[in-house]
């Protein structure tokens, strides 16, 4: 009890906690301030004039931000569907089919992460150019999916591996075909993990900048691209508001993920 009252006990902890909170929330506070700053000039610590003029501009029906937001959501949805279409069968095979090169295959999906982004995406853009995929939604979806498959395959593999083989065999045993057993037993049990992977893919696609910039710009203007050009053009208010809009789905989905992704699923990743 004495130790708790001791300044030496709580002071370092309080400082650490404050520093942590500052690092997390400091930039956010700055964003919020910028989004409502109608006039903010150096060397003022705070904006000299507040207002929602820029919010109104962004949310105007003809405003680019809303258009970009819907495009971003559309691309993220297509990317998620594509990743699920590939990762569910692939992850099932990796988790259940006793593949010989299992570890190697899982590693291959990590490769896009291992190399520096820029050269990879510049080369992708060059290759896509010959297929007329540059500047198309399809091209952006493909490059987002290549990146998203890492999450979806790894997490879905873990989700399938967490399911006892006997559960599926029990269904086969009383007359279900392999596919029926998968559809009625394995897939519903893996659903939380797969949903979590889908959310990650969706969020990654929504936030993705580099690949979209090289493959999609200028025809495909997603929200992060809009944010970049606004910030580069010195329009900090528009950039701040765009960033805050991007935060909303992330926060919502993170709350969902926390419910879905249980520790025992995560523990199987890479097993």
């Amino acid at each position: 009890m004495m130790a708790r009252a001791n300044v030496a006990w709580w002071l370092p902890r309080a400082i650490l906690l404050a520093a942590f909170a500052f690092f997390v929330f400091g930039p956010l506070v700055n964003l919020v301030l910028w989004s409502v700053a109608e006039a903010w000039f150096w060397p003022n610590r705070l904006p000299s004039q507040y207002g929602f003029r820029f919010w109104e501009r962004v949310f105007r029906p003809e405003g680019q931000a809303m258009e970009s937001l819907w495009l971003s959501i559309w691309i993220a949805s297509l990317t998620t569907l594509l990743c699920l279409g590939v990762s569910i069968p692939a992850a099932w095979a990796l988790a259940k089919a006793r593949l010989r090169w299992r570890a190697l295959i899982l590693l291959v999906f990590l490769l896009p992460q291992a190399f520096p982004n820029l050269p990879v995406y510049i080369n992708v853009a060059r290759i896509f150019f010959t297929f007329d995929l540059n500047g198309t939604v399809m091209g952006v979806v493909l490059v987002h999916a290549a990146h998203g498959l890492v999450y979806s395959i790894w997490i879905a593999t873990a989700a399938f591996a967490a399911i006892d083989d006997d559960l599926e065999l029990a269904a086969r045993n009383i007359g279900a075909s392999g596919f029926t057993a998968f559809r009625t037993v394995t897939l519903p049990l893996a659903a939380p993990g797969i949903a979590a992977s889908a959310i990650f893919v969706f969020l990654e696609s929504l936030d993705e900048f580099t690949a979209t910039y090289f493959v999609g710009a200028p025809e495909v203007r997603t929200l992060p691209l809009l944010l970049f050009s606004a910030a580069a053009g010195g329009n900090m208010q528009i950039a701040a508001i765009t960033a805050l809009i991007l935060l909303v789905p992330s926060v919502l989905f993170m709350l969902l993920v926390e419910r879905f992704l249980r520790a025992e699923v995560l523990a199987r990743v890479g097993r």
Binding site: D164, D166, L167, A170, N173
Partner: peptide, 11 residues
């Protein structure tokens, strides 16, 4: 052949 599993393997 229907089996009763040691772990019961209930869904």
């Amino acid at each position: 052949a229907a089996m009763v599993f040691q772990s019961y393997a209930l869904w």
